Computed example of a mutant assay.
Amino acid sequence: MAAFGTVFMPEMALARFDGQGWSNPEIVSSDSLTLHPGAHVLHYSSTCFEGLKAFRHADGSVNIFRIDRNIARLAQSSELLALPSVDTAMLQQMIIDVVRRFASDVPEPPGSMYIRPTHIGTEAAIGKAAAPTVESLLYVLLSPVGDYFAGGDKTLRLLLEENGARCAAHMGMVKSGGNYASALQPIMKARASVQADQVLFCPGGDVQETGAANFLLIDGNEIITKALDTSFLHGVTRDSILTLARDMGMTVSERELTVSELLERSARSGAEAALSGTAAVLAPVGTLIHNGQEHQVGDGKVGPKTLQLRQALNDIQWGRAADTHGWLTRV
């Protein structure tokens, strides 16, 4: 099986902003883009993107999960990066049209069609280090993906990093490529030094997120996760999991979580921790590494609440449970 996100559909949806308005979207080849070497995005990182999925149901229909939330977040990211304003209705139609075009290629569960809307600044102006691009490009790529846990459901090892942040505090809620790039060196060093799978950024002892996912601590019937602010990404999967947890009668605490409290609670019998994101939904965490010491989360194994919550969300996505929150858009 090819690595996640390395196989693409041959065409994508695309629209351009010329400084005055958006062009009519079109379906074009997805093998290349033409950009001026002076394009704003290449020099000043005027770029943001989204990740969402379409799922095939047993009746043959194809359904996109929470398209409205992902479009709203892309529009928000674009605004915070001073990119041209996104026409949200146009983008929704672009996504639906390109998914519909390749509906027959949407894999059966547990696979799905990963959808990557991307917005980049294209104005050729290298003198605009302190000014926004007036031109941009919006496109939607599709990538069929398989079962994230095909190799087995193993628990992850996280290195707690208290001295560094994933990105600038005011940029955390922007889904921009620069935020991921800034986390790469710490992640690579953590993998080499302590065989960690990811870094959990906890600047000043404040537990935030890893390089590519939100963090959840499950202590008995309570889920604890950082309250939303500008410093970290407002995950759509995070929001969905917390909603389902409330539906199940769990207590959801969105508040500050310190490293000391995390280590104390995670050592309790039955404690669980997980990372939430589009690719894995919920990936279990078994070990926290702090100041050279390894701390086991609960019994170090995949926890029942993590599996229950993941299954509940998967069942809605795959059409096996009622979509009581109106999260699915049929194409």
Results as ranks from 00 to 15, higher is better:
250 M>R: 05
153 D>R: 15
198 Q>V: 03
270 G>N: 12
286 G>V: 12
199 V>R: 10
279 A>C: 11
195 Q>P: 00
238 R>T: 03
267 A>T: 03
258 T>D: 01
157 R>C: 03
172 G>N: 04
209 E>Y: 08
219 D>F: 00
205 G>R: 10
281 V>P: 11
222 E>I: 09
220 G>N: 07
283 A>I: 08
144 P>I: 11
228 L>V: 13
147 D>F: 02
180 Y>S: 02
149 F>M: 06
246 R>F: 00
215 F>V: 11
270 G>E: 13
260 S>W: 02
177 G>P: 03
149 F>K: 07
276 S>W: 03
164 G>N: 13
253 S>M: 04
231 S>I: 02
207 V>M: 12
257 L>V: 15
205 G>T: 10
184 L>K: 11
147 D>R: 03
205 G>D: 11
166 R>M: 07
251 T>I: 14
268 R>C: 06
254 E>A: 13
225 T>F: 04
279 A>H: 05
275 L>Y: 02
164 G>W: 14
209 E>K: 07
206 D>L: 13
228 L>M: 12
242 L>A: 01
172 G>I: 03
203 P>I: 05
268 R>Y: 00
264 E>S: 15
243 T>L: 14
219 D>Y: 03
221 N>V: 07
241 I>M: 05
217 L>H: 07
252 V>S: 11
246 R>Q: 14
261 E>C: 13
216 L>F: 15
205 G>F: 08
171 M>L: 15
266 S>R: 04
249 G>F: 03
199 V>Q: 06
244 L>R: 15
151 G>L: 10
238 R>E: 04
211 G>A: 15
282 L>F: 07
262 L>Q: 04
216 L>Q: 06
157 R>M: 00
230 T>W: 00
180 Y>T: 03
158 L>P: 12
233 L>V: 04
212 A>K: 07
232 F>W: 09
226 K>Y: 02
200 L>G: 14
283 A>G: 02
284 P>M: 02
255 R>I: 10
277 G>N: 09
227 A>I: 03
157 R>G: 00
240 S>V: 10
216 L>P: 10
157 R>L: 01
229 D>H: 09
224 I>D: 01
187 I>C: 02
154 K>W: 00
189 K>Y: 01
272 E>D: 12
170 H>K: 07
263 L>F: 08
220 G>C: 06
216 L>G: 07
165 A>Y: 01
245 A>P: 04
207 V>Y: 06
159 L>H: 14
163 N>K: 15
